[in-house]
Write a protein that binds this DNA or RNA. Structure first.
Length: 173
DNA sequence: AGCAAGATCGGT
DNA sequence: CCGATCTTGCTG
């Protein structure tokens, strides 16, 4: 049985239902030769306009427009003028949610992993369901998921800052 | 048009 | 702790 690319129905669920299932799966980068697979180990959920840590908290803008699309699209943005943040849009059309991919095995930190994988602004809006250069595959990797507060969201206030919406997998190898 | 802040990171 | 580096969104 071969590896299975995740389909639309996986991504259109609520971000908090998907988040614990994404660590352990593969990000597949197809460079045109031999596709490279990276195990996702840490993600962070951003959920709707009410979530003051979410980029959609101030409504639709040019930057966050893709968050309002159906789940399965990619949302990337540049932070501090240097680092591309890779996010997977989740939920149904009109419901702005996304999962920040915080680390993959071997590369800790969202800025570092994007640089290593070659993620940049050209991936904005890319569809993980149909793209020929990036997609997600299921795996049999097992691990224990622990939740923690999100990082770097002090600006959102104590209530949203304290939500345990960071999901970390400790790989059992 | 100008400005402050930012879902970060690596070096002191 | 601090600087790098530039886009974004808010103010006027």
């Amino acid at each position: 049985m071969s590896a299975q690319r995740l389909s639309r129905s996986f991504y259109t669920n609520d971000v908090l239902d998907i988040a614990p299932h994404l660590p352990g799966k593969f990000i597949v980068m197809n460079n045109g030769h031999c596709p490279e697979k990276y195990i996702i180990t840490e993600v962070e959920a951003y959920r709707g306009e009410e979530d003051l840590a979410c980029h959609a908290s101030k409504g639709r803008t040019r930057r966050n427009e893709i968050m309002y699309a159906d789940g399965g699209h990619i949302y990337v943005y540049l932070i501090y003028g240097m680092y591309w943040m890779l996010n997977f849009v989740t939920g149904k059309n009109g419901n702005p949610q996304a999962l920040l991919i915080r680390s993959v095995e071997g590369y800790n930190g969202p800025g570092v992993l994007s640089r290593k994988l070659g993620i940049d602004g050209s991936y904005y809006g890319e569809d993980l369901v149909s793209s020929d250069r990036i997609w997600i595959e299921d795996s049999n990797i097992k691990g224990k998921i622990v939740t923690r507060p999100r990082i770097g969201v002090d600006y959102a206030g104590e209530y949203w800052k304290s939500k345990p919406w960071r999901f970390v997998m400790n790989l059992q190898i």
